[in-house]
Design a protein around this nucleic acid. Structure first.
Lengths: 185, 185
DNA sequence: CAATTCACTCTACAGATGTTGAGCGATTCC
DNA sequence: GGAATCGCTCAACATCTGTAGAGTGAATTG
């Protein structure tokens, strides 16, 4: 059912590598790091488990590569002039990229995911803090970011009804005054 | 080093059961469900792994019992008249009970923990929604709750610097206007 | 004090997991 | 067209996991 052309060796390699990464990313996002097995990834990619190892060496590295976002600046290191936060939240609620879902899902139980998320969030916090005046700038930025994270978790990972039933626009609208209260002392 | 009195059989039983539960709770809170092994719990409690099984039947049940909060109403089913939210947040930031930490830690990767947390949060949301007027009551309540969860995760589980360095009072103070903006349309 | 109960440990098993090395067969190179 | 390359699979490993059953010795009971 995929492409019928066996194509060249190099192409095939890239193709299956991508299939493995896609499968891994999906499973990491859905189940988190520990519950995702090499075998499950291999099966989902239609490949032998040993091949996964050959390609990525170990599970850790597979996770890193799955979760790596090449140039997608909007994914995690967003460009946030204080109020566009809500726009990017809209994006997040509409459907966070699987790389981010995978890291969010694993961040509480997998040390490396935790570190990656921590680093990403701290970057965001610093960026936002610059746009905020006052002594509490970093604190306010951090609280704003964790508000976004909390809402995202409730919506995307925990599937809280009250959030699932609301449109991203409505959520953003309700959230706006709260965000303003946080970043505009 | 513990009590030297071997005491009665019944006492000893309760005592070691509590030791096991304490050990389990601590490990679940620290590592989450999957990374916590029966053997680690047993070792930490100074007991044979088989005894843990004998006492609790299986890991799932051990988790349930570890995480069960007997009468601690302030833990998760808080009594929230809309503004006392911040007071209870203060409690959370000062040090969430380990039962809650264990569930929070595991909620993204362990289905049963997810369900328990979802149920607890929905209860909170309902309680808060009653105190909020307007069409968006439940949505506003949900966003408020997820704000709290987000901040708690950042502070307790991810150890975000900007939050770690701030006192609970300061956090509550900065948060107040935002919460008001959410629950007072 | 003899019999029994019972908290507790030892040993072991079955299954899953990450990981490895040998090998096969088609593609590529000269 | 023969040799080398290389994507890929097979079979197997060592380890760790949750879990079960038999047994032991001290507390309890009559």
């Amino acid at each position: 059912m995929p492409d019928l052309t066996p194509s060249s060796r190099a192409e095939r390699r890239r193709s299956t590598e991508r299939r493995i990464l896609d499968a891994a990313r999906g499973l990491f996002a859905e189940r988190g790091y520990e519950r995702t097995t090499i075998r499950a990834v291999a099966t989902s990619a239609g490949v032998d488990p040993a091949l996964v190892m050959q390609y990525f060496g170990n599970k850790q590295e597979l996770f890193r590569r799955s979760v790596h976002t090449p140039l997608d600046r909007s994914a995690d290191g967003l460009e946030t002039p204080a109020d566009l936060l809500l726009a990017t939240l809209g994006v997040k609620l509409a459907g966070l990229p699987e790389t981010s879902l995978a890291m969010l899902r694993s961040m509480l139980t997998h040390p490396e995911a935790a570190e990656a998320v921590r680093a990403g969030l701290n970057t965001q916090i610093d960026e936002i803090a610059e746009a905020v005046a006052g002594e509490d700038a970093r604190l306010r930025a951090a609280l704003t970011v964790m508000l976004m994270v909390g809402v995202t978790i409730g919506h995307q990972l925990l599937d809280i009804e009250a959030l699932r039933d609301a449109s991203p626009e409505r959520i953003a609208a309700v959230l706006r005054p709260a965000v303003q209260a946080l970043i505009e002392p």
